[in-house]
Amino acid sequence: MKPVLHVSNLFVSYHGNDAIRDVNFSVKPGKLVGIIGPNGAGKSTLLKALLNLIPRDKGEVLFHGKSFADIRKSVAYLPQRSQIDWDFPINVLDTVIIGTYPGLGFFKKPRKKEKEWALQCLKEVGMDGFSKRQIGELSGGQQQRVFLARALAQKADIFFLDEPFVGVDVLSEETIIRILKKLTSMGKTIFVVHHDLSKANEYFDQLLLLNKELIQFGDANIVFQKDILARAYSGQFSFLEEMGVNA
C-alpha cells in the first residue's frame, strides 16, 4: 500500500533554534497515529510544518505522493480548544457547514445541499440533536465532536487533531476515540497530538515518539515500552511508573 504521508529529512527552527531535527517517517492509510513526547518536544511544530502553516528549513513532505498544496482540501485540521473563541456567534450546524467551504470556492454560498450534508455529518458523531445550539453551550467533548463533524463535512481523508482531549472528561474522551476508530476503519488516516501517556497504547494504532528528533515510530505496543519512552522523557522514570508504563 502506498503511504498517505511520507516525511523525509524534516527540519524546522524558530529564530535559529531547532524545533525539530531530521524527522523521517511514513504512514499507511487507515491508521490512527498518536504523536507523543514531552512538553516542548515539537509536537505542535511538527503538525504545523506538515500543514505548511510555518516554513520548513529543509525536508520533503508528501501526501499521496503530492505536495500539501495539491491535496490541502482533503486535509482537515482540528484546532486546540484554546484557539477557538467559544463565544463566537455561531451555532453547531453553521460550524459544521464551514467544513464545506473548501469545496465551494470563492463567491459560492452554502445552500440546502450543504446544509443537509452537514446534518448528516453531525449525525455521524451523534450530535444531530444539538444543531441549533451556540457552540459555547456545549461540553468540551461535544465541542470536539462538532469539530470532527466539520472535518467529515470537508470530506477529508487525512485528519490532524491538536490535543483533542484537553478539557474533555473521560467518558467523552472514549466516545471521541470510538468515533476516530470508526473513521480509520473507513480508510481515513488520523494524526492526534497527545500530551498524556496514559492509554496511549490502547488508543492508537501507531505512535510517533518525538523529542525534537524522532525517537521512535511504529506500532503502538512496540513504541510504548519503558526503555523507549525513557529516551524521550529522560529522567522522568518515576513519572512513567505513575502513568502505569511497565515493561
Partner: peptide, 11 residues
C-alpha cells in the same frame, strides 16, 4: 475570523 488556522490550512 472564527478559525484562522483552518482557513490558512485550506489555502
Amino acid at each position: 475570523s472564527f478559525d484562522s488556522t483552518m482557513a490558512q490550512a485550506y489555502g
